[in-house]
Amino acid sequence: MGQKGFFTDTTLCIGCKACEVACKQWNQLPDDGFHFTGMSYDNTGALGSATWRHVAFVERPVPLQGQTTGVGDFSWLMMSDVCKHCQHAGCLEACPTGAIIRTEFDTVYVQPDVCNGCGYCVVACPFGVISRREDDGRAWKCTLCYDRLGEGMTPACAKACPTESIVFGDLDELHARAENRIRALHERGVTDAYLYGKDAENQPGTGGLNAFFLLLDKPEVYGLPPDPVVPTKKAGRTWGAVALGALGMAAVALGSVLLGREARP
């Protein structure tokens, strides 16, 4: 038990996509077609209902700290993206059926036998992770290998990662490990390295991510939002506006009825 999560260190990622393949195989997910996107080595595109791990390849004619190439200004960034299992999860808070639950491992899990495919989690996720498969009609996302965790095993992607870019474990240990890694990188001169979504202090909008990342460039470069917020945090003000509107509606309705009565010839 305890809080489990992933620490994905993108400086160690070599873009082998073993995590993508292991995830598809273990979870027996259908393929998404074999097609060429033209986006560097990334022919997966984005996370989706049948893609629970996605390796992003950022290929740019821009120099980066700690990278030396023989071809002048050029750099690689690779990052294995996954559901973040947020502390305040937008999908979970939006789910009207109770299909999305928080497990004993502090992960976020969609129960396929309860989901009725309303599609509200899809718009509630600030990271664009969960999605509804149209031919299936339900919403799907990474389960953090709930079935494997129950047996005391490591999730398929972390098990398959050959460079330990994806590390699975208790959140406390992962935090300590990540801090050590950042310190080592900064000492080595890679001062741009930072942790994305480690805790509530780092990312107040989500209260921290159970699957957090070590990144080298702005979050946008990897397709991640720079200041994500769980939509529910703003709901109070919106309901306030509804209360104001209700007062107005009642006043207009009552006023019209009284006016209409008085105007009787």
Binding site: W26, N27, Q28, L29, P30, D32, G33, H35, T37, G45, A46, G48, S49, A50, W52, P112, R133, D135, D136, G137, R138, W140, T143, C145, Y146, D147
Partner: peptide, 18 residues
């Protein structure tokens, strides 16, 4: 598997996301 129940009606039709 966890995703084995995911129904695929038309395997010939690639998932239109990209």
């Amino acid at each position: 598997g966890e995703g084995a129940q995911q129904r695929v009606k038309d395997p010939e039709d690639p998932h239109p996301e990209r």
